[in-house]
Computed example of a mutant assay.
Amino acid sequence: MISWKLPWLLLLLAAVPAWVLWRKRRLLSEAASFPPLQFGEVASRSRGGWGWLLGLEGALLALSVLTLAGPMEVEEVQLFDEDGIDLALVLDVSASMQAADFPPNRLEVLKKLSTELVRRSAGNRVGVYAFAAICVTQAPFTTDTQAVVDLIDSISYESVDHYRVGGTAVGDALLMASSAMLELREPGRDQVVLLVTDGESHLGADPLLAARFLREKGMRLYVVGIGQDEPVPVWVNGKPLPGDAGKQLTTRLNDTQLKQIAAQAGGTYFRADSNDVLGRIFDEITRLEHKPLQVQGAQVEHSLRAYGAMGLVLLVALWLALDGLWLRRPLR
């Protein structure tokens, strides 16, 4: 849709025909007949072109008026005012997450579902924390969905040095994520922590105290226990991971402590023992934290004056060529 910044200037277009007629009369009145200055054959070539000159001048005047009137292309757009949340994904990357009861392993399945969750959380500020014995900030809180997805995809077994220190520090991870959210807290904006782990906490802060801290700060906690009741062997890069006494490490889900953590925070505990169940849990969490979108209409204006200016330059060049190189050149 075309609109105008100064539409009242378009009234000047009515004066263009009158100006062209006045210019024609002026040119004719200035013409004078002179006899040949010497004997000889009069050039047969007709000078002509005055009609084209007047047409160019009229077009120049009209285009000048149109350009000054400020033509604009108006585009109707929809703005989405998203009432989002702060969402911290606290993901266990300990050695036991290499177990293959979730093909190809628990960590890869968790990464895939986490990226889907982030993509469906448009408008939310999302931060990602990877932990084992220590906790690292994988992605600081941001609304840049693609950046968070790329950083989740880069998580691997090597993200944490398992050979120097092993174990799982759930309490440290919860405190690190919640402290980061407190620094970003805005009135009326919900803050949610999603903890996904397959084991009990062996190191660091007491996870029950960390859960109580979340509750006191008004944060919601979802805990997802991933694993099965039966022991599952752990493989890393196709090789058995050694455990105690040189035997291959096995892992099983003991969710007693995870249930206590969720209860202490006033949150919800989910148990996932297969890919399908874990996917359904993430779907449910997405629906729980979904916020309605408020859609508002808006207009975006794109000025077209630059095109008018380019047209004026072209017409002036044609006018100069016609008047100076054709009409006023000497007869031969």
Rank of each mutant, 00 (worst) to 15 (best):
G48N: 12
N105A: 07
D86M: 10
D92E: 11
P231I: 05
K5C: 00
W19S: 05
D92S: 08
G267P: 00
L91C: 05
G199F: 00
L151M: 10
D92R: 06
I285S: 06
L21E: 09
A99W: 01
R328T: 02
I285R: 04
P36F: 12
R215S: 13
M72A: 06
T115L: 09
T268V: 13
T145S: 06
L175E: 12
A309T: 05
A99K: 01
R220P: 00
Q264K: 15
L79D: 08
F282S: 00
V20K: 05
V65H: 02
V42N: 00
G267D: 08
V223D: 03
A132P: 02
H290N: 14
Q299Y: 15
L208G: 02
L107P: 02
L214Y: 04
G225D: 09
V126Y: 04
L208I: 08
L110F: 05
L312I: 10
L208E: 08
A122R: 12
Y269E: 12
Q38H: 13
R271Y: 14
L56T: 04
H302S: 14
R271D: 08
V232Y: 07
R271F: 11
A139W: 01
G218W: 15
D323M: 09
E30A: 11
L174Y: 02
T256L: 13
Y157M: 09
I261W: 03
D229V: 13
S44G: 15
A32D: 00
P233Y: 11
V77F: 09
A211Y: 05
R25P: 02
D172C: 07
N254E: 14
L288F: 14
I155C: 04
G238P: 01
E57Y: 07
S159I: 03
L151T: 00
H162Y: 10
S179N: 14
N237Y: 14
K239M: 15
A265F: 12
K291M: 07
G204L: 05
I134L: 11
R328Q: 09
D86Q: 13
D153T: 08
A18S: 04
F213L: 10
E82I: 12
G70M: 10
E301C: 09
T142M: 04
M181G: 03
L288T: 11
S178Q: 06
L27C: 05
V93E: 12
L13V: 05
R212T: 08
L9Q: 10
D283L: 14
G267Q: 06
Q146F: 06
E216S: 12
L87W: 02
R164K: 11
N124I: 05
A272C: 08
A211H: 04
T268A: 06
P140E: 02
L293Y: 12
M181C: 05
E284D: 06
N254H: 13
E301R: 15
Q299C: 11
I226D: 04
L182T: 09
K259Q: 14
S114P: 01
L79T: 06
S96E: 10
L325I: 02
